[in-house]
Computed example of a mutant assay.
Amino acid sequence: MACGKTLAEVPMRVGIIAPNYYPAETGNAVTVRRIERQLRLLGCDVRVFPVGRLAGERLQAAVEEFSPQLLHAFHAYHGGRVAHALSTSLGIPYLITLTGTDVYQALCDQRGLEMHGALRCAARLVAFHACVKKRLGEHLPSIEERTVLIHQGVELPADYAPLAGAGAEDEFVFLLPAGMRPVKNVLFPLAPLAELHSRYPQVRLELAGPVLEPGYAAQVMEELERYPFARYLGVVAHDAMGELYRRVDVVLNTSLTEGGMANTVLEALAYAKPVLVSDIEGNRSIIKDSVTGLVYRDAADFRGKAEHLVTDAHLRGRLGKNGRCLVRDSCCPEKEAGSYLALYRDILSAA
């Protein structure tokens, strides 16, 4: 530390251990890139080490060369174990942000034992919502007290009005933005929306997102051949998603699990779009049914609520307005990054 300077006055050097940093359109990548950008605005010296492109000795050499004061890993299994190994080797503290499948899937299967060391040795763990912290505590009660809550942030666009003339006037578009993997359950809306399409021919479904599991993506493409009202848009660059949100009528989340606040749901709310989401802890952490969006329990409930959205413009407008107010008041990205910076300082002070 420079002579005469306090810890708060020295630029913080943070090494981020990020799985799924590429492609840039995955939920984890969106989260990491937002936090990375905001930390730099706060004066931090940040470098991201993408797990997958760097590994083993190359990764350790790159981290050593940067010489961070602490490591911040995302996803306990894919990032946390790497940070744990680097921490042991380099003698620096680390924290882990829990992102979803690490708590809701990996902790419950054979990978759980491989994660225990990383979770127990982390200086802090971060959850997006109390439901994730509670779930972690059910598996590992001893580390619940070291788990802090930092809500996801989302950029609030100034221009969010629907695009005039962007789509055909006789189309009503449901958008499902999700990576192609089973946990996102992207096949689910095809059958119920097909029934709706038979009565409302203007109904369309658009899927957008990267291929994360090729076998599952092939299954999705095959199914789409049976449903001509639905189409796959491919990967949409994150900076182009705003225009897509503004063009569509309703945004879906059909996930089987989410690690708290899904980026796509927050983004849809920021664009004042009504959302229809699955009844899981992560979605309930954001959406109050019939207030900030609609939550469905099963296919019949999905179909009924989707029809209500198609036929009731007042409902769509009310949900969209309430959703935007929610993220404006509760999901500030500057506050999110400030909370991380304060947590970094606490960790280093303790160390």
Rank of each mutant, 00 (worst) to 15 (best):
Q202G: 15
L86W: 03
L315T: 15
E223C: 13
Q110N: 09
Y245R: 12
A166C: 09
G165P: 09
I96V: 14
D159V: 08
A18Q: 08
Y21P: 01
L54S: 07
V51M: 01
A194K: 12
V235P: 01
V126P: 02
D279Y: 07
T292E: 13
A122C: 02
L233H: 11
Y104R: 06
G112Q: 10
R345L: 12
L193C: 11
H151V: 00
C108T: 12
Y200E: 15
P11H: 09
V14P: 05
M12V: 06
F49N: 03
A300W: 03
M261F: 03
R135D: 14
R246T: 01
T147V: 03
V63T: 02
T311E: 15
R58A: 14
I16E: 01
T26H: 04
Q219W: 08
E9H: 05
P23Q: 01
A237W: 04
G260T: 10
R58T: 04
P93C: 07
I280G: 10
G91Y: 06
G304Y: 08
T254I: 13
F128A: 13
N322L: 06
P157A: 07
L149D: 01
E281H: 14
D312P: 07
G167P: 00
L119N: 07
G4W: 02
L269P: 06
H116A: 05
E222H: 11
P189L: 12
P141R: 13
H151C: 02
P19A: 07
P19N: 07
T88C: 06
T311L: 15
E281Y: 12
Y344N: 01
L86R: 03
P157D: 06
A18R: 04
E222A: 15
E213L: 13
S339Y: 00
V236M: 11
K305M: 13
R111A: 04
D298Y: 12
L207S: 09
E57T: 09
L326N: 07
A306R: 10
T147F: 04
V211P: 05
H314E: 15
L256M: 08
R324M: 08
P177V: 15
I92Y: 02
L149V: 13
V251N: 13
G27R: 04
G100P: 02
D312Y: 13
L309G: 14
A208V: 11
A350Q: 10
A272L: 04
E145I: 09
R297W: 08
D346L: 02
L207F: 15
T257P: 00
G317T: 06
